[in-house]
């Protein structure tokens, strides 16, 4: 074996000792990717606090919560960043989080924010995104989408048993149709091309031309326009309103003893963090910004009405609503 190869092997297989950092933040993968908000946020905060922060990233928000549950009280995390409102009740129930104690200035989450454990850092709306070359008359409401029938353009959606947007659509339909949700699902089923395990698979079907419509976010077209200069993909505004997703961060029991943790949460709702969000995380900033938003964001679908359930409602009924979905969609 070549010495270099041997060196890589040894390096990879020796336990990498946890580097001593002043603040450890657990987050999801795309946050810390080199194009994500992580690198810029790290730089901005480190100049402010003169400390060293370390990101530990896992696949997504659900994996984040699971990682925390797996580690329990032995977690190294001071801050957990990247849960969404649907996971908040469950996260609080673990007893691993402590109140943030921050008085945030200028939060602008639709519907306001009162939670004492978690602070929002960005938000977005679920939306049906369509390929304007294939879909000439996109649905103008959830009702039109649901009642399109089997011959209308197909949509790829995600499974609520395994994915966050999938659960988002279940909540959206529930918010609009209430107890008639099962009938709506039975109708929509005729239009569903397939149900994928996660967002990536559905979006892959969409961009490969296989599915003309996909469940995604109102901000998805912004990525294609800003990063690719491509105006082909558009979000359809729905007259009933769009379901809201808010992403939050919280402080663990370990973080409560670390002064940098609280400082980070305060920093998170200010411009040093918020200015980075729109064009790296492709969501709307939830706090005060200094830079103006890219004009493309002004063109995006602005929901006439914001739909959402409280974390407690979601925690209480999620299982029943997913079962309802399963029943209607399995026929």
């Amino acid at each position: 074996m070549r010495p270099a190869f041997l060196a890589i092997c040894t390096a990879a297989f020796l336990a990498v000792p946890a580097q001593a950092a002043d603040l450890t933040i657990y987050t999801y993968e795309s946050f810390t990717a080199e194009w994500g908000p992580g690198p810029q946020v790290e730089k901005n905060f480190e100049t402010q606090c003169r400390c060293d922060i370390r990101f530990v990233s896992v696949a997504d928000g659900v994996a984040l919560l699971n990682r925390l549950k797996l580690e329990g009280e032995n977690t190294e995390a001071d801050i957990v960043l990247g849960l969404d409102t649907n996971l908040v009740a469950e996260a609080e129930a673990t007893g691993l989080f402590r109140p943030h104690g921050v008085e945030p200035q200028g939060l602008r989450v639709p519907g306001g924010w009162t939670n004492e454990t978690f602070l929002p850092f960005d938000y977005g709306y679920f939306a049906v995104v369509y390929d304007s070359e294939q879909v000439k008359a996109p649905p103008a409401s959830l009702k039109e989408l649901v009642e399109g029938g089997p011959d209308a353009e197909k949509i790829a959606i995600q499974d609520p048993r395994t994915s966050t947007p999938g659960l988002g659509l279940v909540l959206w339909v529930r918010a609009v149709y209430g107890d008639r949700a099962p009938e709506a699902w039975a109708k929509l089923n005729e239009r569903v091309l397939t149900v994928t395990p996660g967002w990536s698979e559905a979006y892959g079907l969409f961009t490969s031309g296989e599915a003309p419509m996909v469940l995604s976010y109102t901000t998805s077209p912004a990525y294609h326009r800003i990063a690719e200069g491509n105006e082909r993909y558009k979000a359809a505004p729905f007259s009933e309103g769009h379901y809201l997703q808010v992403e939050v961060a919280g402080m663990t029991a370990k973080g409560a003893g670390n002064p940098h943790a609280k400082a980070f949460l305060a920093f998170m709702t200010g411009p040093g963090f918020q200015d980075v969000i729109p064009e790296t995380n492709w969501m709307f900033p939830a706090g005060r910004t200094e830079k103006p938003l890219n004009p493309v964001f002004q063109d995006l679908v602005e929901p006439e009405k914001t739909l959402s359930f409280s974390p407690e409602e979601v925690a209480a009924d999620r299982k029943a609503w997913v079962d309802e979905w399963l029943e209607a969609m399995s026929r």
Partner: peptide
């Protein structure tokens, strides 16, 4: 899941994943 067209096509593995994940 991806090619099955809907949740009528669900394997035990999906249920395991669901149990462990969500």
């Amino acid at each position: 899941l991806m090619l099955g067209g809907g949740p009528a096509a669900t394997t035990l593995e999906v249920a395991i994943y669901q149990a462990l994940r969500f």
